[in-house]
């Protein structure tokens, strides 16, 4: 799949933002006044900024509001609802903390649950697609949620929790790669099932000599050859470096900031790979995914 920068930025930043909102919502830490203001500025900035980035991906932005209508069937619609209601509830909770030094936990817990639900809905947009076997596995929600919780714990200064979630995130990501490499074969789609022709089938001629929306969007070839190197970079930056920094220097502010940046860079690479490595079954009609 084509790794669109807007969608990668969205899922990296808003994941961390909603993670931070989760921890603020459950009162780790309970903040007020100026400190609260800074925390919520970061959290809302990441979450809302990420959401806006995803709107840039749309071909017909004026109809974006209609995406709230299909919550009964569509994960993308549910994501919109969870995000908007979650942000409103957390906005009220934050307002009371910043200006009235009042913490209403009913609001906080509701907002925290909705923040996580948003991340879960985002992950299900990908995980539900049978056409992209690499995404169609339970570990997909697993690493979206753990990435969000790890980022939230890091940003909110919950050092021990951050270390635990960073390790879980690393483990789930490695599992996702390992399982993902087998998913296409497990799904069982081949050029023979796609064409129902008997014998050894290969593409002889494409429909058109040029590219089209499908080949551009879903049959992405560039730089997959660097996948292994990028996986190592992602896991080091996303998990290993922050964990080492936090364990060795738990209270050092500059190093904590480096841990956050390293985590974000790592998640960014991991999300890029999530798209670049994903193979859509439609590629079979275009001669992609041929057996060696």
């Amino acid at each position: 799949m084509q790794p669109a920068p807007s969608v990668i930025i969205f899922s990296t930043l808003s994941g961390a933002g909603f993670g931070l909102l989760f921890f603020l919502g459950i009162g780790f830490p309970v903040v007020s006044g100026g400190v609260a203001f800074v925390f919520y500025l970061i959290a809302f900035g990441l979450a809302v900024g990420g959401l806006l980035a995803s709107v840039f991906h749309l071909g017909n932005k004026k109809n974006a509001w209609k995406s709230f209508s299909q919550w009964r069937t569509s994960w993308l619609s549910r994501e919109g609802w969870f995000a908007v209601v979650g942000l409103l509830v957390m906005g009220l909770y934050a307002f009371l903390q910043v200006f009235f030094d009042t913490t209403v936990f009913t609001l906080g817990f509701t907002g925290a649950a909705l923040s996580l639900a948003t991340v879960f809905a985002t992950s299900m947009i990908y995980a539900q697609l049978r056409t992209i076997p690499r995404w169609n596995q339970p570990a997909t929600p697993g690493f979206f949620l753990s990435a969000s919780l790890a980022g939230g714990a890091l940003l909110s200064g919950n050092v021990t929790t951050a270390v635990i979630f960073l390790i879980i995130l690393g483990a789930i990501t490695v599992f996702h790669w390992w399982k993902g490499d087998q998913r296409f074969a497990e799904a069982g789609s081949t050029i023979e099932t796609a064409t129902q022709l008997k014998g050894r089938v290969s593409l002889w001629e494409k429909p058109h000599t040029g590219q089209n929306y499908l080949t551009h969007e879903m049959i992405f070839h560039v730089a997959r050859k660097h996948a292994v190197k990028l996986r190592v970079i992602a896991i080091l930056a996303m998990s290993v470096v922050p964990v080492v920094l936090l364990v060795l220097f738990p209270v050092h502010h500059v190093l904590a900031a480096i841990a956050v940046l390293s985590y974000l860079a790592g998640v960014f690479v991991q999300r890029w790979l999530f798209f670049a490595e994903a193979e859509h079954v439609v590629g079979l009609y275009y001669g992609a995914h041929a057996r060696a």
């Binding site: 050029i191 064409t195 022709l197 008997k198 014998g199 050894r200 089938v201 290969s202 593409l203 002889w204 001629e205 494409k206 429909p207 009609y285 275009y286």
Partner: peptide, 8 residues
């Protein structure tokens, strides 16, 4: 699309 089929 056009495919080549090599029968067994």
């Amino acid at each position: 699309h056009s495919f080549q089929v090599q029968p067994e």
